[in-house]
Simulated assay, not measured.
Amino acid sequence: MSMKMKMEEQENLNLIPPTATLEIDKDLTLLPRIKLNLTVHPSTPSSSITNQIDEWKTKRALLDFLQTSHSLPFPLPEEDLQFKRFNKDLKKRKREDPVVYGTLHIWDLSFLSEKNENDVVKWRNGLVEKLNGVELNLQGVRFRLEVDVPECDDFDGMKKNWEEFYAFRNVNRSSRREPDTVVVNGVPSRWFAETRVSSKPSMLVTHTIFSKFGKISKLE
């Protein structure tokens, strides 16, 4: 009975669209999103920057481009696009250094609800190609936008790295072993806490989250 229910649960999980919200339990929900890294460079490395670049004006310039170029089928909320200065001290800035960097989050994926995972990745990569290299005019100076997918969101890249790493480790062994360990870093511990009990991570909550995606042999 338990084995059958697990198999049915896994099959149901595979049927969930990549843009759908996943309810783990009454207090835990996974929200899909698309995330891109953004870096703004001077159009030419030799450009002389005499004034600090305003992050808000950078944001407005890119939001205007997204709107006028129809890169997105809807206006993007300002809070979903964030920029920070690369180096606040202009005297320490090298000519080839970027001026600001940031992230773009797309939380509303309803326009992709009928697409499968490959279609979503294809759309995301198309957006990267469209934005990468765009020129922005900020405070009378021309800049170039560089866009890429974060390493943690590049599943094909991670899969290739895993395969190469484990193939190399086991080159002298008769059988090849697939990667079987997931290491989670850089997330708030409170996400794995029983909020009504403690703010510290809970084994129960952690197990509940990750067992949703398959069998767990060991949890630390």
Rank of each mutant, 00 (worst) to 15 (best):
S202N: 06
D64W: 02
V134E: 13
P42A: 13
L15H: 12
I216C: 02
S43M: 06
H70P: 01
S43R: 10
S69G: 00
F74W: 03
I24E: 07
H105P: 02
F213A: 03
F168V: 03
W107I: 00
G186L: 08
W123I: 05
P73F: 01
R173D: 15
M158D: 07
E114L: 06
N116I: 03
L22D: 12
S71F: 05
N12L: 03
W123K: 09
E178K: 11
W56K: 13
F168S: 09
P179M: 03
P18S: 13
T68Q: 13
L104M: 12
R95A: 15
T29S: 07
E220F: 12
I209F: 00
Q67S: 11
K94E: 15
E164F: 01
K159R: 11
I209R: 01
E151K: 09
I24H: 02
E11T: 07
E117M: 05
L112W: 05
G140L: 00
D153A: 09
D180Q: 14
T39W: 04
L15A: 15
K160F: 01
L76A: 12
T103K: 08
G186F: 07
R93K: 15
S46D: 15
C152S: 14
Y166N: 10
S198R: 12
H207T: 11
K57V: 01
N161T: 10
E129C: 02
